[in-house]
Design a binder for these strands. Structure first.
Lengths: 206, 206, 206, 206
DNA sequence: CATGAATGAGGATTCATTCAT
DNA sequence: TATGAATGAATCCTCATTCAT
């Protein structure tokens, strides 16, 4: 009957994205639970029922957001470019890139998704597989390389990676929790984050 | 009619705590939204309606949890004890104390409360006032002192404090997100956290 | 907490019956599917939600109707009284009793329940267990006895019982389907049914 | 523009039948209410919307099924063939024919249609007109003839006809309700039905 | 104060039907 | 005619909250 029609597929994909965009906005705004399907539909400019032509249920919208996030991450996952340049310069640029990648949608997505992930087992494991574990794996590889080259001291790579990730996640959360200091001075964070991560508080002082 | 009866007050306070204890368990288990008042009531061994004699509505339970958390923090806010000892020893013991303070209920509370805070403006400001800002203020004071004494390098105290808090928050969240590495090796974290915070990745290497 | 309170139990049972009564009326009137919970609630003079304090879901209302039907049947299951009297008199009175038992609610219940039973596996097996099989078992026993006594000819008891039941069920259905002849002359049916069942069309003619 | 095009008409009729066939299958399987237009369309291998080119709405599918049933009945309505042969032989063959006519689709149609007929006034009257009344009329005529010829005893023809129809309908329903005895021994029914109808339970015994 | 049955607003989801292509 | 995406009314069910006992 219906052969895989590439035009249809494009239209469908566009509609999916339209819905996911709306979902991100609405979820970020009101939180997953307070947000209604009607809210999302209105934000997307479509009827309630249409959403169910593209997503099985409300939770699938979150899955869709996560998956899309992951895909776009993958695409720009070119940050391998320069592990050999000056580590300070590299880390600064990498951190900046990560922060920028979140601008401006990312924070909303984050806020939309995190609370539900904390609570929903299925989402949790998906998020772990799709987002967290790949990041860990990649980062651990770099760490090992730097340690081998003597650029950084010997630390437990797994825990160090988690510590750094945690700092990121935590900063975003504290910001979302309304910390005005963080919001106002957000663009200073790459600097100070790099400094603290590399030199710690003691900065080479014995 | 009813003079302030100290006995009554004690009983009432006990009942409040009984309810809050149940709420923590239930919210941590199922998440704030999925948890029902009936769940909490059952966990507390009382009737649904009784809860409304002590709390205005469901959200107030979260407020109550936060407030109680804060009160208990204050009580054990004795960590000023030794800003003058070796900073490394102090930080290690402080960090450990913080982690221990969360055991085992704290994590549950955290998980119960964070998602809703991220989403509810009123809770957010309360949490900021009650928990975050006091911590910041205190920590900044110490930082300033250490910087003045030349123990740590000159950094922006406000952002540094936030960075450190973020690392804490982030570690807890990553753990709650199901990171088995973090869960299994949780008691190694005070060590490595101290090390990284003080010395950074480069550990005194130029 | 709550000991089995007999008063409460009575009130609850009354409420259950109130709801089931309403359900019978509404289902018979509009059919199970067209009838809404709101319809039933209104007919019962209560709020929608209250129904769910007594029944798990809409289908459970049907189960409840069936079960109640069965219980009341059991209670008046005293038709064993006289297998020894004249079989013709007995059958006539029994058939009449059966018809009367359906008056006036029974037909409605029947109409409310049958369509859904035909379609729902779970209801079907419940109905088989609760209503049909016990009837079969009892009737077969009588048949056997009559055959042993030579009162009726040797026939396959199982199939004969089903034939007779079928005639009952069929008459009710044809009546519900709007057959005015049947409706108008309904009280002549015990006579003719008895006659046909006992003597057949040929009435003793070779 | 469009003259009555016989080719078109044939195609259209074929499409109608294709849809009705699918509808019978689906309705029998899931019941009229649980079955969706999409189900029917898929079973027919066409799109949802196409159905509405041939039927006004979902209920019309049932009407269509009924009408077609009636037409086919009429066509094979050749059972007048032999009212003069031995009544016992005739009835046996007639009953058998009736049962066979239902094999295997008929039962499904029956199950698909009955529940909705019981509930929908419009369907009910259509069914009465199309299916029941013609059958009654024809059967009554035969009865009268047999009675006139003294082959069967004097009974009320109208009620006797209804009794016999009821037995048929009831047997089918009991079978559909899951009676395994009936299902397994279905082909014994013409025998015993004939026997019971003609001779009754007493089989010529005074 | 404690109880828990009753309430009814609210929301996710379904699906018959329409209509632009 | 055929398609199937879009529509949105309809409905089951949940659950925070109330209140008579």
């Amino acid at each position: 009957m219906s052969q895989p029609d590439p035009i249809q597929a494009l239209v469908a994909a566009a509609r999916r994205n339209q819905i996911l965009d709306a979902a991100v906005q609405v979820f970020a705004d009101k939180g997953f639970n307070r947000a209604t399907i009607k809210d999302v539909a209105r934000a997307a400019g479509i009827a309630d029922g249409t959403i169910y032509n593209y997503f099985e249920n409300k939770t699938s919208l979150l899955l869709g957001i996560l998956n899309r996030l992951n895909e776009s991450d993958q695409r720009e996952g070119d940050f391998a470019q320069a592990a050999q340049t000056d580590i300070r310069a590299w880390m600064h640029s990498y951190i900046k890139q990560r922060y920028d990648a979140l601008e401006p949608e990312g924070y909303k997505i984050f806020q939309a998704v995190i609370p539900e992930i904390l609570v929903d087992e299925k989402l949790r494991s998906l998020y772990a597989e799709q987002v967290i574990n790949p990041t860990y794996a990649m980062a651990e590889k770099f760490f090992q390389q730097w340690m081998d080259e003597g650029i950084i001291q010997q630390v437990d790579a797994k825990l160090a990676v988690r510590f750094i990730s945690a700092a990121f996640v935590g900063l975003i959360i504290l910001r979302q929790l309304g910390d005005t200091e963080l919001k106002d001075r957000w663009d200073e964070l790459p600097d100070i984050t790099t400094e603290l991560l590399l030199n710690g508080l003691m900065g080479g002082k014995s």
